[in-house]
Structure formats: C-alpha cells, structure tokens
Write a protein that binds this DNA or RNA. Structure first.
Length: 623
DNA sequence: GAGTTTGAAACT
DNA sequence: CAGTTTCAAACTC
C-alpha cells in the first residue's frame, strides 16, 4: 500500500492539478464535451501517467506498482465513466456506475465495494484536476484494482498526449471493448459519444467485456498481471499485442497445482514489462486458452476476453468454493486452473495457504475466511511474508528445484535422471508412500531424493532410492536404481501412476530452464513447479533471489501445440539455450536469450516468443 | 457434503 | 533440533 502512495503522490502533484484546473479549456470541455477536454489537457497529466508506469517503481515493488496503476485505473475508470455520465444523462450515470461495478466487484471483499463507491464519489468533469487528485486520494484508499486501464491510459496518453484523451480512450475501449477504436481514436471526439451511446445500449456488452477483463486481472489481484492486460487491451487488436503482464498468465499457470513459482515469475516479468512493451499476449492465450479464443468472434472482444482468461483466469466465472476445489483438482491438473484456497484460520497469511505460499493474492474463487491475503492488506501481507522469510529464506522459493547439472544434462543427455528436478526440502511422508498428493514431491511431479525422509517411498516420479518410476516399482526387480534413468521413456514420461491426466499436448510447459524437466513431463503440476519462480520473485515483491534458486526462478514456457496458436507462443527463459522437449517429446528449441536482452517478448516469424523475465533480473547467474 | 487422513507449517 | 500442535489440502465415504 505504501508504494502506491508514492506514485499517487506524484500524480497528485499540485502542478498537474493546477494546470488542469487552470486550463480554461478544461473547464469548458468538462462541461460540454469530453472530446475537447481530452485535447485540452496536456503534458502534465501525461507525465503523471507516465509516472505510474515508471519502471523504477516496478522494480521496487511490483506489487506496489501494479497497485498504483490499478488504482489509478479504477479511478480513471470511475472518472471516465462518470464523465461520460455527467456529460450525458444523469440517469445514465447511475447506470454506468452500476455497470462498472460488476466488472470490478468480486464476491470477496477484494475491492469491489470501494471501487464503486469511489466511482460514485468522484466528480468527474467538474474539475479534472481535482478529479485527478481525488482519484489519487481515493486510490490510496482503494484497494487495488488491477489495471489494465492504467496502462492503457498511460499508453494512450502517450499517444494522445492528453490524459483526458487517454481517459476517454480507455473509456471507449471499455465500452466498446474494441481496440480498434483506439486506433481510430486518434480522433477522440468519437470516443465519448460512443461511450455514452454504449451506456444506454451496449453497455452490458461492453461492461461484460470489461468486467471480464477486470476479473481476469483481479482474479488474483496481482497487480502485475494487470498491466499486461491493459496493454493488451490497448495495443491489442493490432497484431501488436500488448505486452502482457505475464503475471496474469502466471496466475493461470500457477493455479493448476501448486506452483507458486510460476505465479511469481510471471509477476515479475510483468513488472519488467510494466513499461508498456509490446506484448505477448498471444502467448497467454495460446497457452491457456486457445480454446477460449474461439469463443469470441470479434477481434477486439476477443482480445479482451482472451486476456482475462489466459490470465488465469479461468475463473472468470465465479465458482463456489467447493467447485473451486474440484475445479482445481480437475483443471488444476489440466494446468489451467488457479489456486484457490480454503483457509479458515490462517487468514491466508501463512504458508498453509496455497495462495499466499504461491505469492498471489486470494481472489474470488477462494473460499477463505478472514482473508488478509488481499491487495487491501498489502502491507500486512508483505510484512508477514518478510517475517516468514526471515525465518526461512526459502520459504517462498520454488519447492521443486533443478540441479544445476540438469542444464547440461538437458542439452546433452536426455537419458539422465528424470529426477534432476527435486523437491527442495524433500518430503516426509509416512503413510502415503509418496503416491498421493499429500507428498509434495509427488505433487510437484518430481521424484523423491536423498533429502526425503519418507517411508516406503513409491513415488512414481522417482523413488528415493533412485528408481525412477512406478513401473520400475512394479518391475521391482529391474527397477532399482540408475539403470532406468537412462531410458528415454523418462523423457516422454509420465508415470503410469501419474494421477493427473496427461497434459494436453498444447499445454505450455513452464519449466525451469535449467532442469531436465524439460524433458520430463511431470504430471500436470509439474510444469507449475518447474516454472515457478519463488515467491521471492513474487508477486508481492521482488527481492533478491536466492542464488540457489535463481535458476529456477526463470520460467520457460513452451507451448507446443496442436493448436497453432499454442505452438506459436513460446516463453522461455533468457538464461540459457535450452532444448526442451515437449510433452510429446517434440523438441522445442528455445532461442537462447541473454538475460540482458531488453525485451522479453520477441516475435519470431510470426510466432510469438515470449520470454519471461528472469525472476531476478539482473541477478541471474545461472549455471 | 461431511468427515477423515495426511503431512507441511508453525509453534514450543 | 526435536516434539507437538495447527492447519488446510487431499482423500474417502
């Protein structure tokens, strides 16, 4: 919460305010037409908007940044909508507000109520300067909303040169759900009118789209994620996708099973991107939701919808707690579900909470009680997190880590142990024989190792004693140690016992660049683990990495898919050249990127290459 | 859906 | 560091 304030403060600087207020044009415009207004206000705002996106903040605290933006956005949204309303009919205003709420609101307390209130509370046109300021104030109070819009607005501002314009634009976008509008929008005039019109008519449609977006973003309430969305929205329809914040995706990715890491990484990457880069959205889409893509017929709408979904959210649709769980079980395995917790006593501030452990905020689908793992309580979350980390620096680190060796192995010898990925601390199973998800190793799709203190280990992914799979087990005689490792089966792998259904081919793999995982396909969850960055990279904040974990922190996602879309997008880590095998055992080559490369996202021949930023950007040593 | 089992996390 | 308790997910019925 603190960090956001900074930005807020910046934004709220008197200077901008004065300018805005002073501008005669502004007043005039406000009262009359949004369009003009847009033109009237200039640079000042732009600057402030820029501030929001400013990279520094991002680095400082991804979370915070996102917050800022998100908040800002909500404000803007509110103001924008209000503006429209005021301009138009008052009656509509209410309607707008109402509509807007749904988008933002969540069942959970996450943010919703406030937003709506704020929106209503803000007067819009009266004084844009004041308005802005109010927004800032409100922002502080508000929780967070993810915000694409913020990004968009920022972007648009840049483009348009005036906050108002951008605002109008964003509004338009929202309403229309059409990115193209933006393009045309060069002329803002249309924008407001459009919005008004929409208000009365298409509102629901546009609102829905927006809501979807919002939800997607908020789902996890990960700030980082939002930015990406925004961008997407903004840039979107055009081929240039917005740079999405990976965060979104992460969430999505993360969800399936426990994979905090993933989420973290994404978020991180998001931060990096906050600056508004071009996006990779497609990736997301492809990764998680190629399916969904089909749903929307229109590009623009498509974009919008897709984003959220990919972001993780799956959960656009509210789900009852129970379903939640089930869903997580099911979809989770599929790899596309989100994390949802069901905490009752931990307030979601302990590692018991999957969301917290994963470095993500609890969201709507969570059925937790007295949840503090929300943007609103950011400070608490961060503090708790620190505390836990102080106790155990690796608490939020990926649970599954790859051996440094693995890299080498990957490139050269597929044959090596599948187990190159191992659980950080090892399990301590006594009764489950490491054959159930109670076992973290099993759940993570990795074999047990020396670190494990399990009894009667029968881990299908590799037993403590060194045997690889259950098959071995069954074959017990042959199974024992190392011989088996060599088989390529491993690569293709999927333990017979594997609980989860085979990963969809198209399913993206988030993997640790280093690990041999690339070759292995663990049960669904596997990829999560691999992918996952530690919380350290986390959503909540970025901190210096554990060197030991760094390698993991990067994500490599490769989508290989049957679906064209999917296949086209690749996310990979900058770290090293890695040849990874898809589940199919197809080889997916990752271009090796240097971490140094400025832009994470790359397009190659029409294919989108998305690179995730290293969790720890500069730090990545990797070996 | 309720209850049980399990093992990690937290606590002492 | 070991033992115990707490917790929530995983699992069973």
């Amino acid at each position: 919460m603190d960090t956001p304030q900074k930005s807020v403060t910046q934004i709220g600087t008197p200077v901008s305010k004065l300018k805005v207020e002073d501008s005669p044009v502004f007043n005039y415009i406000c009262s009359l037409s949004p369009i003009k207004t847009l033109k009237s206000i200039p640079i000042t705002q732009t600057l402030s908007s820029l501030n929001f996106t400013s990279p520094p903040s991002v680095f400082t605290s991804p979370h915070a940044v996102s917050h800022k933006e998100s908040r800002f956005r909500s404000q803007k949204d509110g103001s924008a909508s209000k503006e429209v309303a005021s301009i138009g009919e008052e009656g509509n205003e209410e309607a707008l507000v109402e509509n807007s709420e749904p988008a933002q609101s969540h069942k959970n307390d996450c943010n919703t109520p406030r937003v709506s209130n704020d929106v209503r509370g803000n007067g819009c046109c009266e004084d844009s300067g004041k308005d802005l300021q109010k927004m800032m104030d409100n922002v502080k109070k508000k929780s967070d909303t993810p915000d694409w819009e913020t990004l968009i607005s920022a972007t648009t501002e840049l483009i348009y040169g005036s906050p108002r314009e951008s605002e109008a634009f964003s509004c338009l976008l929202k309403k229309t759900s059409n990115s193209e509008a933006r393009l045309r929008g060069g002329t803002m005039p249309t924008s407001k009118p459009v919005s008004n019109t929409n208000v009365g008519n298409n509102e629901s449609e546009s609102v829905d789209a927006l809501s979807i977006l919002h939800r997607g973003v908020r789902r996890r309430c990960l700030d980082f994620e939002i930015p990406g969305n925004n961008q997407q929205t903004v840039g979107e329809s055009s081929s240039s996708c917005v740079v999405p914040s990976i965060g979104l995706h992460l969430n999505a990715v993360a969800m399936p099973s426990k994979d905090n890491n993933v989420a973290n990484e994404y978020s991180f990457s998001v931060n990096m991107k906050v600056g508004l880069q071009s996006s990779t959205t497609p990736l997301l889409q492809s990764q998680h939701d190629s399916v969904r893509e089909n749903e929307t017929g229109k590009d623009a709408s498509k974009v919008i919808e897709v984003v959220p979904k990919s972001s993780g959210l799956v959960e656009l649709t509210p789900i009852s707690p129970k379903k939640k769980r089930r869903k997580s079980e099911q979809s989770g395995e599929g790899g596309s579900s989100c994390k949802r917790c069901n905490c009752k006593k931990s307030k979601c501030l302990k590692l018991y909470c999957e969301c917290f452990a994963a470095g993500v905020y609890c969201i709507e689908p969570c059925s937790c009680i007295d949840c503090f793992n929300k943007p609103i309580h950011e400070d608490v979350v961060l503090a708790t997190r620190k505390q836990i980390e102080s106790r155990n620096p690796l608490a939020f680190a990926p649970k599954v880590i790859r051996n440094s060796d693995s890299i080498i192995e990957v490139g050269e010898d597929a044959s090596k142990t599948p187990a190159s990925a191992r659980h950080k601390r090892g399990c301590n199973c006594k009764k489950s024989n490491c054959l159930k998800k109670y076992c973290e190793c099993y759940q993570g799709g990795v074999g047990c190792s020396i670190n494990c203190r399990c009894e009667g280990c029968k881990n299908a992914f590799g037993r403590k004693d060194g045997s690889l799979f259950e098959q071995d087990e069954e074959n017990e005689t042959s199974g024992k140690s190392g011989t088996m490792k060599k088989q390529q089966n491993v690569e293709l792998f999927i333990p017979a016992a594997q609980p989860s259904t085979p990963m969809p081919i198209r399913q993206p793999l988030a993997q640790l660049p280093l690990s041999s995982n690339n070759r292995l396909l663990p049960p669904q969850s596997h990829f999560h683990h691999g992918a996952i960055g530690s919380s350290s990279s986390g959503i909540y904040n970025i901190r210096k990495p554990d060197m030991s974990l760094l390698s993991h922190s990067r994500i490599e996602t490769i989508t290989e898919d049957i679906d064209d879309d999917m296949s086209e997008n690749l996310i990979h880590s900058p770290i090293a050249n890695i040849n990874s095998l898809s589940p199919n055992s197809k080889r997916v080559s990752l271009a090796h990127l240097d971490s140094s490369e400025s832009s994470p996202w790359r397009r190659t021949g029409g294919r989108n290459l998305i690179r995730s930023f290293p969790t720890f950007p500069s730090l990545t040593p990797h070996h």
